[in-house]
């Protein structure tokens, strides 16, 4: 919405035509982001290598490479590990949300996602420093280990 966002690029990865158009319109028109698109995880990785974005919005259930695999691949590569990631998904069960967060996403939003919530989550994830992200990941992994032990 503000001028500082004009240069920020978001990579949007989703296989649903309606969602892709909706989110790209919302990000372009309301958030002033430049949006690039991909319809599955593998295509998303290609786009990522060609032109690393400032933030990624990704769905989970997609052909070829699903969202979780995509985020894990992203976080596993030192070149891309600090790119903010927001997951939007229709998978609502606790263990699915947990798997999403453990994969390394900065936010997990449930479909149907409100536009304001999405813009807010993107801003928040952009504001996160690499150190904060690492700390949070470690904290989550620790919590999960503790829970499993119990």
């Amino acid at each position: 919405m503000t001028a500082e966002h004009t240069s920020l690029r978001v990579l949007l990865i989703d296989d649903d035509p309606i969602v892709i158009r909706l989110v790209s319109d919302a990000l372009t028109l309301l958030g002033n982001y430049a949006v690039t698109l991909a319809t599955d995880g593998a295509a998303g990785l290609e786009r990522l290598m060609e032109d690393p974005p400032d933030c990624i919005v990704v769905d989970i259930r997609m052909p070829h490479l699903n969202g979780l695999q995509f985020v894990r691949a992203l976080r596993g590569d030192p070149a891309t590990m600090d790119i903010p990631v927001v997951i939007i998904s229709a998978l609502v069960q606790d263990r699915e949300v947990l798997a999403g967060m453990l994969s390394g996403a900065d936010a997990y939003l449930l479909k149907p996602v409100k536009i304001d919530d999405l813009l807010h989550a993107i801003e928040q994830s952009l504001a996160l420093s690499a150190e904060q992200r690492r700390q949070r990941m470690e904290f989550l992994a620790q919590q999960n280990d503790d829970a499993e032990k119990r």
């Binding site: 649903d16 309606i18 969602v19 909706l22 309301l30 229709a90 998978l91 479909k111 149907p112």
Partner: peptide
């Protein structure tokens, strides 16, 4: 029930989100 929960959410987002977008953009559209 789990499946249906998944299945309805994506088209619901399309319905809800587009209407929301029209309202938010108002005259700019």
């Amino acid at each position: 029930i789990i499946y249906i929960n998944h299945e309805l959410r994506t088209p619901l987002m399309g319905l809800y989100g587009n209407v929301e977008l029209v309202r938010k953009l108002g005259d700019r559209l």
